[in-house]
Simulated assay, not measured.
Amino acid sequence: MSDHEGSLAEPAFPGDDGLTDPALAPVLGDTSATLARLGEARVFVPIVAVLGERASDGSDKNADMAAVLMAGADGRQALLAFTSVATLEAWNPQARPVPVYGQAAAQSAVAEGASALILDLGQPHWSVVETDDLRHLAAGDTLAHTPTGTAWVRATE
């Protein structure tokens, strides 16, 4: 269970202005620093309407809302997430922004069988979190800087 779980009656981000999370804004473009802060930062996962079956007269029979998974040329899938409502709307103005912590976005990607999370697709600072980094982010691990590079650290209870 994540530290970020709440109830539907209590919004996780009251008064959210839709701007890039202040903890994340200064590090965008720096892959390591972004990865170190992403789990605790608020991001937006786009939800889009997906048409279901059509009635015989051609009208929509039903529609569902779904998070967006993109498939790469190699067949691997990635969940999209954006740092602000503006970056999400630049990608698709019809998508509904759903605010979540970066860790929850990574957990959703893993649960959907995706091997990556693409952050801010179409923006100059876009980045990809994939494979082991995605699993560590989903698990709530912390990326630490060491004298020899970076390493994922798991909190113990």
Rank of each mutant, 00 (worst) to 15 (best):
L88C: 08
S32V: 15
A109N: 01
M1C: 09
E89Y: 01
T87F: 00
A67S: 12
V68D: 09
V128P: 00
E53R: 13
R42A: 11
R42D: 02
G6K: 11
P14L: 01
P93T: 04
G39S: 06
R37F: 04
L35C: 05
L69K: 04
A104Q: 14
D57M: 07
D30T: 04
E5A: 14
D132T: 12
Q103Y: 08
A12E: 06
A78R: 00
S108Y: 04
A25T: 01
D17L: 06
V153G: 03
V85S: 05
A104N: 11
D141P: 08
D30Y: 06
E89Q: 15
D3M: 08
T87Q: 02
D120T: 11
T146Y: 06
Q103V: 10
G52K: 03
D3L: 13
S7G: 15
A67N: 03
L121P: 01
T131L: 12
Q94E: 12
A73Y: 02
R54D: 11
D30Q: 12
L137D: 13
Y101C: 06
S127L: 14
E53Y: 10
A155V: 07
N62P: 00
N92T: 12
W152S: 09
A33L: 11
Q107L: 15
T34W: 00
R154T: 15
E157D: 13
L80M: 06
D132F: 09
Q103L: 02
D141T: 03
A111P: 09
G15T: 03
P124L: 09
A41G: 01
L51R: 13
A86F: 05
